[in-house]
Design a protein around this nucleic acid. Structure first.
Length: 234
DNA sequence: TCATTAAATTGTT
DNA sequence: AACAATTTAATGA
């Protein structure tokens, strides 16, 4: 959200309900929370809109209040690889914010998404002053490490059903994405974008996973019935 | 609140 | 990629 970014122009203060949807605020003391909340800004990203771009200096630490984002990287050959989808409750970019480096990925909105941003200076103030915040960040980094290890594992297998299963398990991770409730709100088209499949193939994979009793497919979303089963798909 | 209509999503070829 | 069927959201009485 820099000056040139349209999101920056549309940013505003958060409502109480939106603050409620920011998980790490709960880990702070009242004083810390007051200071952090005063610095949070909210903006609505339209479909396809860029939230942050690789190479730009980190000015905000971002999170999803509601909606769905995708994180992707462009390689030297100009191809784009989608790494993860980010559902409600997800905050990302601690690594680069910590080191005050440039973003190493692109973030785009897969649908209309309410994005929250904390200025990187306040992020560092919290790191320097709040034990609860440090615990949250450490927990988050650890959880994400587990996800990337699982993702690498399934990349080698390259089986569509497995990749869909692992992606769904990742998207429903309650530690990283506490805003995702009983049902994960995601269309089959959005899931296809994240996994890198056609919608038809994503549809087939979902039906198969449902037939195995691991998920229940619904209109505009799905319900995970067996998380461990999803993660152990081969 | 209910019926009608438009838009979004899904199932299938 | 295209089409039909289904589901939800929006509209207005």
């Amino acid at each position: 959200m820099k000056a040139g970014n349209p999101l920056y122009q549309r940013r505003r203060a958060p409502t109480p309900g939106e603050l409620q949807a920011i998980p790490w605020l709960q880990a702070l003391t009242a004083d810390e929370r007051e200071r952090a909340a005063a610095d949070i800004r909210i903006a609505l990203a339209e479909v396809g809109e860029t939230v942050c771009r690789s190479g730009r200096p980190v000015t905000y630490w971002f999170g999803v209040v509601d909606g769905l984002l995708k994180m992707s990287i462009d390689n030297a050959q100009g191809q784009t690889t989608t790494l993860i989808g980010i559902p409600p409750g997800g905050w990302f970019g601690e690594g680069t914010a910590l080191k005050r480096e440039a973003y190493r990925y692109n973030i785009h909105a897969l649908r209309k998404t309410m994005v929250a941003g904390l200025h990187v200076d306040t992020f560092h103030w919290l790191l320097d002053h709040s034990i609860g915040f440090n615990r949250f960040i450490m927990n988050q980094l650890n959880e994400r490490l587990g996800q990337f290890i699982a993702a690498r594992e399934s990349d080698r297998l390259n089986n569509p059903e497995v990749r869909v299963a692992r992606s769904l398990a990742a998207l429903c991770n309650p530690v990283l994405y506490p805003g995702v409730g009983e049902i994960l709100r995601i269309t089959q088209q959005e899931l296809a974008y994240i996994v890198g499949l056609s919608r038809q193939r994503a549809n087939i994979a979902l039906q198969l996973l449902q037939a195995r009793g691991l998920i229940h497919v619904e209109y505009g979303g799905l319900r995970v019935l067996n998380m461990a089963g999803l993660q152990s798909q081969i």
